[in-house]
């Protein structure tokens, strides 16, 4: 698609794209290329000599059982975050889609947490579930659960998942609500005339019509669980106890802080890039996006 009428100028368009091009080249392409090059190199302990080692760094990274566990853990986190937050958001959106008194007010209250930053979300939840002074922790203990996420890896993981899913409810809610409102009411009325009860209407008409939204949101939620949970993990558990809440991004960060193995951490970055590109490709391929390029 192109404009039929355009301006003629030899220099001006380059001047106009120059600032963005400069920033993209310096802060995007240059580091990305560096990461790829670095991932094929091995540096000695003193940083004096480097040698080209082909895929050795990748073999090291992928061969470590710890890294494999981290990949699995990241996907498990993503799964639970996505499923819990999507289902709750869908329920709320279906309810808010009805002509209710005060539905605008409900909506305002439900979209709030979108604006809360991940580290703040972490702080809120760590406070509620702090084993010694958290209000919810007292409740759990009263129910006979030995709650201590500082020691128990599974409990720490569920705390992260809970906090991350909480934050994502509002985002999913907004998109579900938009999706629901786009469904023509005539379709639903027709089904009602045919005698379909609300539950049946939901599963046979609304849910299928909503599936593009659902699929889009699944991908977005996975990407969210990969990247935006960093702030939550860093404030709640810092990857502990004993590495039980370390995700892929957190591992890149942690290994980088320790310094040392440059090639290895570059290889990790490149693997992450691969995963993100794959997810984006899936999104482009299967999700109908109303964009013309």
């Amino acid at each position: 698609m192109q404009k039929q009428t355009v301006f003629q100028s030899r220099l001006l368009p380059y001047v106009l794209v120059a600032p963005q091009l400069a920033i993209v080249l310096i802060f995007f392409y240059w580091p990305a290329v560096q990461a790829v090059i670095q991932s094929f190199l091995l540096q000695d302990a003193f940083g004096l000599s480097t040698s080209f080692v082909w895929f050795d760094n990748y073999k090291d990274v992928l061969g470590a059982p710890e890294y494999f566990a981290t990949i699995v853990r990241t996907f498990v986190f993503s799964f639970f975050i996505a499923i819990s937050s999507l289902s709750l958001a869908l329920l709320l959106a279906v309810m808010a889609d009805k002509p209710l008194r005060g539905s605008a007010l409900y909506r305002t209250f439900l979209i709030w947490p979108y604006a809360v930053a991940p580290p703040v979300v972490g702080v809120l939840w760590v406070f509620m579930l702090n084993p010694s002074l958290g209000i919810l922790a007292h409740g759990l203990r009263a129910m006979g659960i030995d709650w201590n996420p500082l020691l128990d890896g599974n409990q720490a993981a569920s705390l992260i998942i809970l906090a991350a899913a909480w934050k994502q409810i509002s985002y999913n809610f907004l998109f579900f609500l938009a999706g629901l409102q786009a469904i023509p009411s005539s379709v639903i009325e027709a089904a009602a005339i045919d005698g379909a009860r609300p539950a049946r209407r939901f599963w046979t008409i609304i849910f299928p019509l909503l599936s593009p939204t659902i699929f889009f949101l699944i991908v977005v939620n996975i990407v969210y669980a990969f990247f935006d949970t960093f702030g939550i993990i860093d404030t709640i558990t810092r990857g502990g106890p004993a590495g039980s809440t370390v995700t892929l991004v957190y591992k890149v960060y942690e290994d980088g802080l320790l310094g040392g193995n440059l090639g290895g951490s570059a290889a990790q970055s490149v693997i992450l890039m691969g995963i993100v590109i794959a997810l984006t490709a899936i999104q482009f391929r299967f999700v109908e996006r109303k964009v013309n390029y």
Partner: peptide
């Protein structure tokens, strides 16, 4: 609004950055 050599190349150069959040290239950056 302009036609100029490398217009589409530049567009794609910018477009591709959509794919990678800053987190994955954090240390090189």
């Amino acid at each position: 609004y302009f036609r100029f050599p490398f217009r589409m190349a530049i567009f794609w150069l910018i477009f591709i950055t959509l794919m990678l959040p800053v987190e994955v290239r954090i240390y090189p950056t």
